[in-house]
Structure formats: C-alpha cells, structure tokens
C-alpha cells in the first residue's frame, strides 16, 4: 500500500499552498506561504483533526533554509510533509510547541541552524553551555582545527 495512492482531502487551505512535490518514498511535500504552518495546525487542533508530527527537520539550501514538518494522519494512514521556505539571513517562523510536542525538535533546529521560533524559549538542547562557535549544521560551518586555542 503506497502512501501516495490514498485519496484524502487534506484540511489545508488551498490559498496558502505555494507548490507541491513528491519524495522518492511517495510522501507529498506541501510548501506553504511564510508563517502559515502555525495557522494550519491551529485549525487542525480546533477541528479535532488528530495528527502526529513525527519529525521536524531543516535543510540548508545555501541561499535559503527549508523547514519540514513530517505529519502522519493515523486514521487514514496518510503521511505528508508541510514545508516552509525561510530567508537565509533572518530565518524566523512561529513555534507550534504549545500545540504539539515539538519543543525539542524546534530547540534543536534553533541551535543547529539558527532558526528563530517565535515563542519557544528552548534554544539549547544538545550543545554545551556557552556555545559560541556558530551553527554547526549549516553548510559553511567548519569544525575547529587542531591548534586552535581554547578560551
């Protein structure tokens, strides 16, 4: 049973969708207009659309960031991806950690890529305290070389 074969009306406003594309594994990536993800998910919570956000991941595309939410709707066995394109110099979006348990996922994206989630206080998950060497998962970041002095 391939996921893409299932027809199901997604409760997403057609007006906010910019584009759609498919992954190799069949999941649809639905790119939304900036800052529309929170509104969409607020709608789901209001309409009792039971969803499961399996993961949140970010890809550094050199000139922009792409933020992906992997969503599963268990009742209809449907999975799809909500995406948002973020500006490279000022990557900002709204948090959904109060609506779903994504608090650590967002914190990780903040410390690894420098993406600012408005309203989420968690900004450090994995890195040591007082980390000041930039955002390590960005493409340009290089690990420190031998011989660098420790403060």
């Amino acid at each position: 049973m391939k996921i893409s074969n299932i027809k199901y009306d997604l409760p997403i406003d057609e007006n906010v969708i910019i584009s759609k594309r498919n992954l190799v594994s069949g999941e649809q990536i639905i790119v939304l207009k900036p800052k529309m993800i929170r509104k969409t998910i607020e709608n789901w919570v209001k309409n009792n659309f039971s969803f499961h956000i399996s993961s949140l991941y970010v890809i550094d595309e050199i000139d922009r960031f792409e933020l992906f939410y992997y969503v599963i709707h268990r009742k209809s066995n449907l999975s799809f991806i909500l995406a948002e394109v973020l500006d490279y110099n000022n990557p900002t979006t709204q948090t959904i950690s109060d609506l779903s348990g994504t608090i650590f996922y967002e914190g990780e994206a903040t410390e690894m890529f420098g993406i600012n989630f408005e309203g989420n206080k968690v900004t450090e998950v994995f890195l040591p305290e007082n980390w000041n060497k930039g955002f390590p998962m960005r493409k340009g970041w290089e690990k420190s070389k031998k011989g660098d002095k420790i403060e």
Binding site: M112, F126, L127, K143, S144
Partner: peptide
Amino acid sequence: TLVIDRDL
C-alpha cells in the same frame, strides 16, 4: 547530532 572536536 554534532561533532565536538576537543580542540587541544
């Protein structure tokens, strides 16, 4: 996630 190279 991250590589922490203990810079010596």
